[in-house]
């Protein structure tokens, strides 16, 4: 009898909690597409400051965050949280930068800001030890799991050459605005990892990509969905032994930040900062050739800011 009572009460409490959550907020069904273009610049590059002030300068040059995030919209901020390493090692996006972006999104009226990554190392430890979980929670954002296939929904990629379908995190599908916040790093197999490579963290089956011409798959995926804004953290840059890094000796303080709505342009500029030509990175070249974006920096209107 007591067991039964307990079950009844437990179930009741569960339902109540569920109901309260429903009152709290249901994701909006209607999607407003974020404003595009209208900025004088295709790319903003900042150098010589701390990550947060550099972001503020860059977003101001881009015409303000309000251009991208409207009142009441839901926002996905996607940093790189791939590794269970401390912020000083540069394996993950700078937690202060991520938190700052979350805060700014909320300030311009975002209803909700979500942060997740399909990590390589153990996910809960990555979230915690990268410093991103605490920083984002402190900024009022929601840190969301991406640790099992259940969170990922199948999409088809009609314009992909090798990658025809993928399973994508449900928040990429439901959020109104998608802000990509990669960190620039050396990568043992793709030379560098920047904005496009960072999108491997919103899909489930990465093994398929590795098996089927990695660079082509990376470029194919961007034909499906380009982030509304790319913010490249190039403050602490792993220049060898990437993408995880072995020690701080692998890190060079580049103290830069890049921002663009053109994911290929952002990656091209970041590759230059890293020290490789964009055309030497196959997925940047392929994406350029597929018309996803422009890697020819001399054809772009670039705002350069020294701090």
């Amino acid at each position: 009898m007591k067991r039964r009572d307990f079950l009844k009460k437990g179930l009741g409490a569960g339902l109540m909690a569920g109901a309260l959550l429903k009152v709290g907020g249901v994701g909006s069904v209607a999607k407003g597409s974020p404003a595009a273009s209208d900025s004088a610049f295709d790319l903003v590059a900042v150098m010589g400051g701390e990550p947060v002030p550099m972001f503020d300068k860059a977003i101001a040059a881009m015409g303000g965050l309000g251009r991208f995030v409207k009142k009441g919209q839901s926002v996905l901020v996607k940093p790189n949280i791939g590794w269970d390493t401390a912020p000083e090692l540069g394996g993950n996006t700078n937690p202060r930068l991520v938190a700052h972006i979350v805060k700014q999104c909320l300030r311009v009226g975002a209803k909700e800001v979500y942060v997740f990554d399909n990590t390589c190392d153990n996910w809960s430890r990555c979230y915690a030890n990268s410093g991103i979980e605490d920083a984002v929670k402190g900024a009022g954002g929601k840190v969301v799991p991406a640790n099992t296939e259940n969170y990922f929904k199948p999409v088809s990629i009609p314009n992909g050459k090798r990658l025809k379908e993928a399973k994508v995190h449900e928040l990429v599908l439901s959020c109104d605005v998608f802000i990509n916040v990669p960190i620039l790093k050396h990568h043992s197999s793709t030379k560098v990892t920047i904005s496009m490579k960072n999108l491997m963290g919103i899909v489930w089956d990465r093994r398929y990509w590795h098996k089927n011409d990695l660079h082509q798959c990376i470029a194919d995926f961007v034909t499906w969905r380009k982030p509304d804004l790319n913010v490249v953290d190039a403050y602490r840059v792993i220049t060898r032994n990437g993408p995880r890094g072995v020690s701080q000796a692998d890190v060079v303080m580049k103290k830069s930040l890049l921002m663009s709505t053109d994911i290929v342009a952002a990656d091209a500029a970041a590759a230059k900062i890293f020290g490789v030509e964009p055309c030497e990175v196959p997925h940047i070249k392929i994406a350029h050739e597929m018309g996803v974006g422009n890697m020819n920096l001399d054809e772009l209107n670039i705002e350069r800011i020294r701090m």
Binding site: A45, M47, E88, G90, R236, V237, R240, N241, V246, S247, Q248, A249, D250, V251, V252, M253, K254, K255, S256, A268, A269, K272, I273, G275, L297, D298, I302, R304, R306
Partner: peptide
């Protein structure tokens, strides 16, 4: 141990934008 062990990052040699 891997030879690349150290607890100090290097300073950047970039003093201007490479583009």
């Amino acid at each position: 141990m891997h030879e690349s062990i150290g607890n100090r990052p290097k300073e950047s040699e970039l003093d201007d934008f490479p583009f």
